[in-house]
Design a protein around this nucleic acid. Structure first.
Lengths: 137, 137
DNA sequence: CTCTGTGCAAAGCGTTTGCAAACGA
DNA sequence: TCGTTTGCAAACGCTTTGCACAGAG
């Protein structure tokens, strides 16, 4: 029984080979969109259906195993849920980096000023990464 | 010539009554999704088409007059572009509040650590507003 | 007058659903 | 064995497109 089998079961779902491979693929990519995931999955399961991808992404998102990251001007990507972090997106090469960041301060200031009980913080920073910035046109 | 007429023209688009009313409606709501906007627009232009709404929202977004706010678990809402701010979303009543916030500090820390040139910051905080928190079940 | 925008209908796409067979626990 | 999941095909819903006419500048 591998890690993903256990993880999936802990989230009250059956550990099918397709689900294990989805997690494996997402983990390798860090973040992946539906199309790319489908493409990768077909290499392992040639007859897998897009419906299966959607059903599993939805099931695992509802069971808090996956998280959808909504990006400006791009398709959403999915990641395995871990500690809170922001996302740094390069508009040139598409690379997405996780940024360890403590939202506590931001949340505290805002929650106090606005009498709000915050339970989720989504922060996406878009721009140009160092590699792309170095390229002289 | 009203304000919106001028604004629209400044963004290199023709100021049609439909566009003026779209801006008017979005301004009144602060943030509005496509369906609600269509509903409101039909009160003023009974034969307006949903295609017109989409074409205009897209045109005005591309011309940096409108901005799409992507929300977790909800349809996107649109707002008139103004100074940078974060969004506070109540998961109970759906209310969306703008929060004046200076992203400079966050951006500076991240940009330095990650060698990134940031040009857009999207921050959405979700939770429960004071009104909804006060309601005893 | 010219070019852009509107409204309608149709097309296009991404996502979901229903169902029978396969599979996990 | 029983309930869940898979894969397929069809349905669905949101968004875009093409076109003829109307309207802005």
């Amino acid at each position: 029984m591998n890690n993903y089998t256990q993880t999936i079961r802990e989230h009250k779902l059956k550990a099918t080979p397709q689900r294990i491979e989805i997690l494996h693929t997402i983990f390798n990519y860090g973040h992946i969109n539906i199309d790319k995931l489908y493409e990768e999955m077909r290499l392992k399961f040639s007859s897998i259906s897009l419906a299966t991808i959607y059903k599993n992404i939805n099931a695992m998102s509802e069971n808090h195993l996956l998280f959808e990251v909504k990006l400006p001007n791009e398709k959403s990507v999915y990641e395995i849920i871990k500690d809170e972090h922001a996302h740094l997106v390069c508009n040139s090469c598409g690379k997405i980096e996780d940024v360890k960041i403590d939202f506590k301060n931001i949340e505290k200031i805002i929650a106090n000023n606005h009498q709000f009980k915050i339970n989720q913080t989504d922060l996406v920073l878009s721009g140009k990464c160092n590699d792309c910035n170095s390229i002289v046109e």
